[in-house]
Amino acid sequence: MHGNYERLIYFLKNFLKDENIKISESMKKHTTFNIGGPCDIMIFPESEYEFIKSMKEIIDKKFPYFILGSGSNIIVKDGGIRGIVINLTKFNKISVKENIINAKAGAKLCDISNIACKNSLSGFEFACGIPGTIGGAVTMNAGAYDGEMSHVIHKVKVMDYEGNIFDIYNENMDFGYRSTVIMKKKYVVIDCDILLQFGDKNKIQENINDFTIRRNLKQPLDYPSAGSVFKRPEGYFAGKLIEDSDLRGYIHKNAMVSDKHCGFIVNRSCANSKDVLELIDIIKRKVYENFKVELELEVRIIGEDKEN
Rank of each mutant, 00 (worst) to 15 (best):
N119W: 04
G83D: 00
F51I: 08
K61M: 12
G83C: 12
G80V: 09
G106K: 00
D78N: 10
K104L: 07
G36F: 04
N99R: 10
E48L: 11
Y65W: 13
A105K: 04
F124L: 14
P45G: 04
S122Q: 13
I101F: 12
I41W: 09
D40C: 07
K28Y: 09
K61E: 14
I81T: 09
K61N: 15
I115C: 08
G106Q: 07
C117T: 06
C110Y: 14
K104D: 08
F91T: 06
F66T: 15
I74G: 01
G83A: 14
F33K: 02
A116P: 11
I101N: 03
S54Q: 06
F91G: 05
K93N: 10
N119E: 09
G36E: 08
G83E: 04
I75D: 09
I81N: 01
G83I: 06
S54M: 05
T31D: 00
F44N: 11
K93Y: 13
S47M: 11
N87F: 13
I101G: 03
S122C: 11
K90Y: 13
I94N: 01
K118Q: 15
S47Q: 10
N114P: 07
V76S: 01
C39M: 01
I86S: 05
N73R: 04
G83Q: 05
S70N: 15
M55T: 03
V85Y: 01
S54I: 08
K118E: 15
G83V: 03
M42T: 07
L121T: 04
